[in-house]
Structures are given as structure tokens and as C-alpha cells.
Simulated scan of single mutants.
Amino acid sequence: MAVKVLVVDDSSFFRRRVSEIINQDPEMEVIGTANNGKEAIAQTAALKPDVITMDIEMPVLDGISAVKKIMESNPTPILMFSSLTHAGASATLDALEAGALDFLPKKFEDIARDKEEATRLLQQKVKEIGRRRISRFNRPRPATPTASAPIRSSTVTQPDRSFSTRQFEPKAPEADFRASGKKYQLVAIGTSTGGPVALQNILTQLPANFPHPILLIQHMPAAFTPAFASRLNSLCKIQVKEAENGDMLRPGVAYLAPGGKQMLVEGRGSGQKLKVFEDDSPRVTYKPSVDITFASAAKSYGDGVLAVVLTGMGADGREGARMLKQAGSKIWAQDEKSCVVYGMPQAVANAGLAEASIALGDVAMRISREVGCG
């Protein structure tokens, strides 16, 4: 069955362009278009698409408002299109918080090497989130969160469509989980599609006295990572910052790898610092790359790393996790039910590298207990 797509944009040229790219793939079909958020809401109710592509800036009703209303009435996986500006990044993060699952730059060639790769990337993202919806998404249950008390997801058979942190239900700590007693020096987390909301869910639950530095590797354009780090820092008890070259790693600080660059750990003992650099290699697909950061952590910290691979397409993180495992570090993966896309955690799990597969709502609690502060 083809993935049914609704294309929403106020530009007739862009609607036509996106529709042509989607219809080139026999596994997808554009079943309708809309030129503003109000039309998108009506078309979603009438056509029941499997996935929606949505612009942010539109007349009558903007994309963020449309996402919120669609998630309230007819929850549907949504891929946002955004400009590569600070304002565009902030708006995209608002859309993800409202319930959108993923995003691409409006000029999505900006994060691809050529037109053909850009076409494949758009097709892949639409199919991934559309297929997940067909197989396992259902209507979300209402929740009433508060800004002062982050809410965690429950382990349910069918997770919420929106994957918004605001729709995670409170869950009692797992009585059967016991810390291993292993000593750590670093926590490293790698993710891609669905990662912004997953990272927010985890990091907002960590205590201010978290005893180790945290490395965050999120596949994201360069224009987005400063806004994302700033947002996380404003919400979390720990400090979150975009990593800079030469940063000394400090306990209770999370360092987000800058988009378009690589982040390495250098040094041993108690003097580790970060090397952040431009990577022009055509052989490296992801910038930042989970594999590259994990591999450097294995060299610097040996068996002292707790690494977690979260939701995301592809297999980035598998080989870095292999190096960490060989050095004696511990690897966890997010479980399939709570992932937006199970690709990255599945690659780690299928390679026999993950010691546990964990629901998103349990990750923060388990990390805290495992490192001795929960």
C-alpha cells in the first residue's frame, strides 16, 4: 500500500516540486495539497493522509498552529520544511514541540551533496514516518503537563503520534532496575530523526548535580544547533551548550555537537577536552557523526562511558558503539515502541552491542540510577 501524502505550502511552485518528487517513488502518492494551515486541517480530516509535509510560514494559519490543531483532532505524522536561519530553527523546534516528527530545510539541497541525493533524502524521510504511522500510530490520549514538572512517557503498546514531551504520561520508576555499580566518567547520547524531542525528554529530568559531562550528537543543520542548545539550557537543571573547540569537559554540562562539524574527545585521565572542526570529507555522511564522537570517547575514556543510541534513520552510531563496547563501556538503545524511527537503535541492537533496549520514558531515570545520582 502506497504512503498517502498531503503537501502543504503557500507556494504553488514548491507544492508542485515536492509533489513531483514524492510521486516519483511508486511507494508514495500525493493525495492532496493545501496552501495554508486552515486548508491543511480540513484536508487532513477529509483525506486521512498517512503523512503531511508542512511549511512553517503561511497565510491564514501558520504551520505551527496547524500542527497543534491537527494533533488535537486528527493526529498525523508531519514533516516540516524550514528556512536555515535562527528564526527558522526556533520555529522548527516549536513545531517539533507541537507534535511534528521531523524536518528538512526548505532548500533541502543545502544538506545534500547533489539534487539526486536531496530527492532521495526527502523520499526516505516521508516514507519512514509514513510507514511508522501505518503500522503502529494511534490517537494520543490527552495530558495536562506543567512547565515546572517534566513528564515522562509510559511504556504503552501504541505510542502517541506526536511524540511531544507534553503528551508523555507520568510513569513510576521501574522497581526491577538496579544500577550495575560500574564507574563512569562520561555519558554520550547519539540520535537523529525524533531526537530533539527525545533529548528534551531525557535532559529535563536529569538533576543539577549530575556527576559527569554529557556529549550530545544530534543530526541537525548548523543553523539549528545554537537555537536547540539554548532551548535545552533554558529548560534543564543541568547546563547545556553548543560545543566549542577546546571546551574542557565538566561534570553536569551537556555539550551539543555543532551542525555541519565533527566533535571529538581528546586527552586522557582528568584533562579531556573537545576538538570541534569542519569536516569536508565526502566519505562522511553525517556531520556531526555519532560514530566519530563515540570512537573518540572510546580512545579517551576506555571503559568509562555510558552510551545511549536513540531514535533515528540509518546506522550511525553502530561502529562507534562497537569500539566503546570493545573498550569495556556500556551501550543502551531506545526500544522500538518509543522510537519515531527505529533505524539507529536497531542497528546497535542487531549487532549485539546494546546491553538493554529501553523505553524513552525510562532513559533518564536509568541513566541517573546507573551513574549514582538517581
Rank of each mutant, 00 (worst) to 15 (best):
M1Y: 11
V3D: 14
V7T: 08
D9F: 02
S12G: 00
R16K: 13
S19A: 14
I22D: 03
D25F: 06
D25K: 06
P26F: 01
A34P: 05
A40Y: 12
I41Y: 09
A45T: 12
P49S: 14
V51L: 08
M54C: 06
D55L: 07
V60A: 10
V60L: 08
L61H: 05
V67E: 04
K68P: 02
M71T: 08
P77G: 12
M80Y: 02
S82C: 11
T92L: 11
A98L: 05
L101W: 13
F103P: 04
F103L: 09
L104G: 03
A118Q: 06
I129D: 03
I134L: 15
R139V: 14
P142T: 11
P145A: 11
T146E: 14
S148V: 02
S154Y: 00
V156R: 15
P170T: 13
P170Q: 12
E174I: 11
D176T: 13
S180R: 01
K183T: 15
T191M: 01
L199Q: 03
N209M: 10
F210M: 09
L215V: 04
P221C: 08
P221A: 13
P221T: 11
F224M: 02
R231T: 06
C236T: 14
K237A: 15
M248T: 15
P258L: 11
G259M: 04
G271H: 13
V276W: 09
F277S: 13
A295M: 07
A298W: 09
S300V: 00
D303H: 10
V309K: 02
L310Q: 09
G312Y: 01
A315K: 15
E319A: 01
A321H: 00
M323N: 10
L324I: 05
W332F: 14
Q334Y: 03
Q346N: 12
Q346L: 10
S357Y: 08
L360Y: 04
L360M: 08
A364I: 05
M365D: 15
S368T: 06
C373H: 03
